[in-house]
Design a protein around this nucleic acid. Structure first.
Lengths: 125, 125, 125, 125
DNA sequence: GTGGTCTAGACCACC
DNA sequence: GTGGTCTAGACCACT
């Protein structure tokens, strides 16, 4: 379910975070579902347990999961916002990107053409 | 003309690279114009000469400038493509971003609204 | 495995680059093999770590190796082309050299004699 | 007659030296012909006179020209060897190149094919 | 004066 | 421990 790309420049713990979030947003993991234990995931992925721990700690800080001593880690209940959070983040980077393209003289029409192309491709794939 | 943001997570030498490219694309620096010398820019920005050197070396490798021992560094002659290169790069990251937004269920119409908002803001600023 | 000639006019970091490439082409280093760490190689060769770093950075840029923060540097996977790349480069300088020799009035037969001499020497050594 | 390429990585004074040698070998400049004065050439090429002086000094050291105080610089009399000198130098770099190609597994036949191609091209051009 | 290379030693993020 | 960035200061070849 969770995979890591060692050659990616993104740190492993960030890949783990994004991976879990994706599973939650897609509904694969639902509220109060148990996550794999730190040790189990560490051996499965052949990764240092510290790295898994770092990802879980950050996920808990962001309110995506909660951990119970001696029990394990579980998907948080107030997950509804997660999608909105991510959309908000992406919208922000989208805004920066558009501003740069504007300053390079790319017209609004050209952008919209790109948008429509991508949406057509994604819908049919 | 060239400024550095020490708080930015982006390395100084990358900021320098982007800064020079921007000046070239905007036409402030034209072909065969001389850039500030490594040492002069270093003292101006209160930065170590090595860091400037690293940026200039990378700019030369990318074909944006050329450097002559004992003479200085100059804007390259075949600069015309630079804008197109950058637009192409940004379009690629735009495509990735749009695909992610699509998968999060954001509609084409919402995206286009964002595009129009940003373009309106940038035009009036 | 890796040696440096301090008397050589070629910069140390270039010697390192060529040295690693040679080991890869000869098959001593295979895909995903780990290279010595920046610090370890630095102490082994009694060279500053920055110089090693510079060489590794350039090797990564050329696609010969890939580096992972906190893990190490490794031989890239798409190494097959490296020999062809180098042969192509050498052929280009060979062509320039031959053109010069031609214009100095050296005959094709004289060149071929040189070629055969060198190949005989190398084969028996 | 003499041209400089500022963008070439080769130092200007070396370009001057090679340029003069080429003119001598080609017979454009014959023994005891007068070379342009340091000042005249400096203004013609928009170059610092020091650089011209450095080239002339080196040419005199190599026995290609001789200088007479207050009279000027002239092509030396024992010019016959010059072509041989240059051929010898080129042969040495050719030997190095061939050794590298040998170690990369390029066969003698492949080299000879290149030689014949180049010589055919140069002869018809 | 210019760019290019190198050393010595430091700090950071990551595993 | 690892690679990546930066500083401080030095030397070289070249103009």
């Amino acid at each position: 379910m969770i995979t890591i790309d060692y050659k990616d420049r993104k740190p492993i713990y960030e890949q783990l975070i994004d991976n879990v979030k994706e599973l939650v947003v897609k509904g694969v993991l639902k509220r109060d579902d148990q996550l794999p234990s730190v040790r189990q995931l560490a051996t499965n992925l052949a990764i240092n347990p510290n790295t898994i721990q770092k990802a879980y700690t950050e996920l808990e800080r962001q309110g995506v999961i909660y951990s119970l001593k001696g029990r394990g880690s579980f998907v948080a209940s107030n997950i509804i916002d997660l999608r909105e959070q991510q959309v908000a983040e992406l919208n922000q980077t989208l805004a920066k990107l558009l501003a740069e393209l504007f300053h390079l003289g790319v017209s609004k029409e050209q952008i919209i053409t790109v948008v429509e192309t991508i949406y057509r491709e994604e819908q049919t794939s």
